[in-house]
């Protein structure tokens, strides 16, 4: 069951499309539910599908196609760090290693306390600020240095 808050947000997204095209709101709806619940379980995906009157599998196709949807738990903070060329040239490796050591996890792993998950991202369209990372999909941190990463982790604790 979707929460009333989620429904209100999804309903707003639905207004962007012709009435017979509810499915068009699936990208937003999945994002909204994921933000609320932390990740997308199969129940969450079917909740969204039902609400938008589309087949479950069609919603699953979407959820599994786009990188930013998480089909497994990702802890409280998902840190996605870009390692693509522009970031790589600006030593994203140093940041990645720093994060790995500090958190004690590799990519796609969740820290034992369930707080952090580290993900390798593809180009985020902000290469001017390389190296950079995104926390929980929606907050970007640019021009990273190990010191800045420490500060960020401290804030997120």
């Amino acid at each position: 069951m979707l929460s009333p808050e989620a429904i209100a947000k999804i309903d707003y997204e639905i207004t962007k499309y012709p009435t017979e095209q509810r499915q068009a709101a699936v990208m937003s709806a999945l994002r909204i539910v994921q933000t609320e619940r932390g990740w997308l379980s199969k129940e969450s995906i079917s909740d969204v599908a039902q609400y938008l009157r589309m087949p479950d599998i069609a919603a699953m196709e979407v959820a599994s196609f786009y990188n930013m949807y998480d089909l497994a738990p990702v802890g409280k903070y998902k840190i996605s760090i870009c390692t693509n060329i522009s970031c790589m040239l600006r030593d994203s490796d140093v940041i990645v290693n720093h994060l790995k050591t500090k958190l004690g996890v590799g990519f796609n792993e969740v820290t034992a306390d369930g707080k952090f998950c580290l993900k390798e991202g593809e180009c985020m369209g902000a290469c001017g600020g390389a190296p950079l990372l995104i926390v929980n999909n929606h907050t970007m941190h640019e021009f990273l240095t190990p010191a800045k990463v420490d500060m960020l982790l401290e804030e997120l604790k």
Binding site: N84, I85, M124, G125, C127
Partner: peptide, 10 residues
Amino acid sequence: EGEPGTFKDR
């Protein structure tokens, strides 16, 4: 835009 190195539209 998401092609590595592209960030102008932002």
